[in-house]
Design a binder for these strands. Structure first.
Lengths: 197, 197
DNA sequence: CTATTCACATACGTCTCGTATGCCAATTGA
DNA sequence: TCAATTGGCATACGAGACGTATGTGAATAG
């Protein structure tokens, strides 16, 4: 008795995404040969074109998967903070930590934007920013954050600063020390959003 | 009488850089065929490989040129502000405005990092950040900016936020309104660096 | 049980890149 | 002035990598 067809198809898709994710995350999108990584999944480019249209389509699928995982991790950790402001800051910090991972950094912050354009325009890959925007909106309502900033805009700026912070740490000779400096500077910038007493 | 040799060589280099800059800035690095844009300069890939080693080398040269121009523009405008803090804020604002130009955005903020890696590690392409770092250091000495942030780290974070702000404006349906929101949010973040009374 | 669909592989042409090689003009030295 | 040499740039060639068109065999439908 063989597996049903639907299951085989899902498995093929998953294998392709996994193989591509590994290749993109290590050698990078441009250097990843479709022949090579499809073969490493026991398939050929035929399957890839059938399911994802082209190389970019597969990258989109990989990005959607990673974005989902990042959102899970963010929500998981941020739900444990005492105040909403702290939760917001924690989310940002987690975000930086995730951006430290080579695979995420490469795919989400370097190759992704270069190949697919502005991340803000990606479909199915905005979960993290959405969460931060939500927090900011609430914080404004509660009077913690100054009223005259647009929450989504602020989220994007913070996003940009985060990825820079992560890059800086990742490329540092002394990641421990750099991490402290980067996170300190980052939190200081966030203070700018808070209402002063 | 022909032009001297040195001059011809410089001209060839300049033509290659100009052609590549145009191609990279419009269709992008990956899509730019070396055969095509060298031909548009009346040359072949032979000249390119001779002078720049490979496609990446040419991209580096293009980036160095653009970086020099950006630094000039930054210094030019920023020298007119009344206070040093204002000068610093002006520099950041100019930076965002420059990042709005499609050529700069594409080459300096998208393809460049994807192909050459972390901009902080680029040789001959840190003039703008250097200037901002300098200002921040001075502002700390003057007691305007909080002491416990590392100036260069802060510059890089600001840099990341700037490029995000620019992308957001550039891709907006209503650039005018988005620009206002982005710059407002950006300035609010900068406030976090200032000492509170 | 036949027909059809479709998931995936194979084959082919095209494009781009990098290297090896060749050529010609400009410089050098006597 | 004239050979020798340098080196700036072009040409030729081979190696992938991509996209498309086509083929095939198994699962599903009727």
């Amino acid at each position: 008795m063989h597996k049903p067809r639907k299951e085989m198809i899902a498995e093929t898709r998953a294998k392709l995404i996994a193989a591509a994710r590994h290749a993109f995350g290590t050698i990078g999108y441009a250097e990843a040969s479709m022949d090579d990584f499809t073969a490493s999944a026991g398939l050929t480019r035929g399957a890839l074109y059938h399911h994802f249209g082209d190389k970019k389509g597969l990258l989109q699928a990989v990005i959607a998967e990673i974005d989902g995982e990042m959102a899970l991790r963010v929500n998981e950790v941020a739900s444990k903070a005492p105040t909403r402001w702290q939760r917001f800051v924690d989310e940002c910090t987690i975000y930086i930590e995730m951006a430290l991972e080579p695979e995420i950094q490469r795919i989400m912050f370097r190759d992704g934007p270069a190949v697919l354009g502005d991340p803000a325009q990606w479909p199915n890959a905005n979960a993290c920013t959405a969460s931060m925007t939500e927090h900011l909106t609430r914080l404004q309502e509660e009077g913690v954050v100054v009223a005259d900033v647009d929450p989504e805009t602020a989220s994007r700026l913070i996003n940009g600063a985060s990825s820079q912070a992560a890059q800086r740490i990742a490329n540092s000779k002394d990641p421990e020390a750099t991490s402290k400096k980067a996170i300190a500077a980052f939190k200081q910038l966030l203070e700018g959003l808070r209402k002063r007493p």
